[in-house]
């Protein structure tokens, strides 16, 4: 790293990647993978997302991990974020729920409202 402008180039590139600016049909799934998430079973959930997407040949969805958002009691947690930045947070996930989210939310475009954070916290 030689200068602030060099950092800025990386920042812009990374921001584009993160916000899916050039890719309007892209979706990110972000799984909470801190100690709390992993202890609650986030690893099989993440695997289920990846596996179900692969099985159905869906290649516009990127699965990635993040840390602890603070509501450890609702882990495993996953955010589904589209290119508009709209985010649906799913909580208390397991493998089965993850696969259902792929089918209903990502393929059919209908968020599974019974698994959402808003539902759990209402």
């Amino acid at each position: 790293m030689k200068s602030l402008s060099e950092l800025d180039i990386i920042r812009k590139r990374a921001l584009n990647e993160l916000n899916l600016h050039d890719k309007p049909d892209r979706i990110r799934i972000v799984v909470g993978m801190a100690t709390c998430g992993i202890a609650a079973g986030a690893e099989p959930v993440m695997k289920a997302f990846v596996d179900e997407l692969e099985r159905r040949n869906i290649d516009n969805v990127h699965v990635t991990k993040t840390g602890c958002i603070g509501v450890c009691r609702l882990e495993p947690i996953a955010d589904v974020i589209n290119a508009k930045g709209e985010k649906i947070t799913y909580v208390n996930l397991d493998e089965k729920k993850a696969r259902r989210i792929v089918v209903e939310h990502l393929i059919n475009g209908r968020p599974v409202s019974e698994y959402t954070a808003g539902k759990a916290e209402s």
Partner: peptide, 12 residues
């Protein structure tokens, strides 16, 4: 309510 983000629940 079900679709609102985690940021909007009282906890956050």
């Amino acid at each position: 309510e079900a679709l609102k983000g985690l940021e909007e629940v009282p906890f956050f």
